[in-house]
Design a protein around this nucleic acid. Structure first.
Lengths: 208, 208
DNA sequence: TCGTGTGAAGACGTTCACAGCT
DNA sequence: AGCTGTGAACGTCTTCACACGA
């Protein structure tokens, strides 16, 4: 197979395009041009078209794209026909907030279980996800063949937990801990580092 | 002034280097080589050295970098000698969690006020930041010359709030709403889109 | 000899500009 | 005429490889 690899940044944008297409679909739009969709997504038209060429041709010259067709095509590429089970580890402030957060469910992800070192101490108000002791983590991940994990533990314990879940079969980690995780190449880590983002902003704001 | 612009990605990495240096400093290390620091930060040695050349020379050939000197130099570049005041808008699940989150304070940011459309409905447990009605937002931002804002409102209200705070003088927005904000060029927006990150992960995990 | 500093090469991503289909 | 699809140009970031100083 000589499939050209789709750039990571393109994958991110595909998700954004899909959201815009869903909104257009709800508004009853049948077709959309690359310039209109690009404007909604905050990119240039040429970029949008280039992104799409990575996995096929979908438009009609002189007309644009069928909203529904393009949406289906992107969904297929992103591979979310089926729901992905996710575990969340570390039910502190951030962790519990994410458990209450509706955005994941809305996008087709189900947080099937949460783990904490001291599950008794967690405020469970508004949380319907079962909360386990962290000792059950490996067993649970293996038995349920979980591939995705959200990591919300403090920085000093993050690497240890990461090793454990990777050993148990997790291959994608959404890491909220302010640490650089060392993982095998086969594992994908997406870092969400809140302090880092603020610090970065403050750099660009700070020049006067 | 003919200062070469420091790439945005380098700025991000500087923050990471700084964290690693702080950890090294706490462990009593005096000097560090580019390869050691790079390994800790998860980058290649050449990249680290290149990043540093954007704003000066700090190492000693054959020896490495002075942990303390380099840390101070990076702090100066990032410009965080003084604390930046930040406002948070939208005290829902995510917003309140961020208010309780200690990571910002630890990195030198102070959330000076939070705003919500219905401040009475917010659970205030564990929150010490004053909570205002969103009607006071513009006045507060102007009077306190706030430059940074954390946006945690639902997607459909985000653009409106963004317009308001930009008008009031905010030039850096940390946006947690799953929307593409349209702002003037002079304003920096850093998006933290949780569902997007998960979707992205699931793409890389999904191939088997 | 060891590790930094850096020009040059390379890889990658974006933008342009236009050919070609409807 | 209008808008897509795309090779080529461009710009940016990363990596290499080695000169140079300690």
């Amino acid at each position: 197979m000589e499939k050209v690899e789709i750039p990571r940044k393109t994958i991110y944008r595909l998700s954004i395009y899909q959201r815009c297409l869903t909104k257009l679909h709800e508004n009853g739009a049948e077709t959309v041009s690359s310039s209109a969709l690009a404007a909604a997504a905050g990119v240039k038209p040429a970029q949008l078209r280039k992104d799409l060429t990575y996995f096929g041709q979908f438009g009609t010259r002189g007309l644009g794209y069928s909203v529904e067709e393009l949406r289906n095509a992107i969904r297929d590429v992103l591979g979310r026909t089926h729901l992905q089970p996710v575990v969340l580890i570390g039910a502190g402030n951030l962790g519990t907030a994410l458990l209450r957060y509706q955005g994941f469910q809305k996008e087709g992800f189900e947080v099937v279980a949460a783990f904490d070192a001291v599950p008794e101490g967690v405020v469970k108000r508004g949380i319907s996800v079962p909360l386990h002791d962290i000792d059950d983590l490996t067993r649970f991940v293996q038995e349920n063949e979980v591939r995705l994990a959200i990591l919300c533990v403090p920085a000093d314990g993050a690497q240890e937990v990461a090793n454990e879940i990777v050993g148990a079969g997790v291959t994608g980690i959404l890491n909220f801990s302010p640490t650089v995780l060392q993982v095998p190449e086969s594992v994908t880590v997406n870092n969400v580092d809140l302090a880092l983002e603020l610090e970065n902003l403050s750099y660009f704001v700070g020049r006067d």
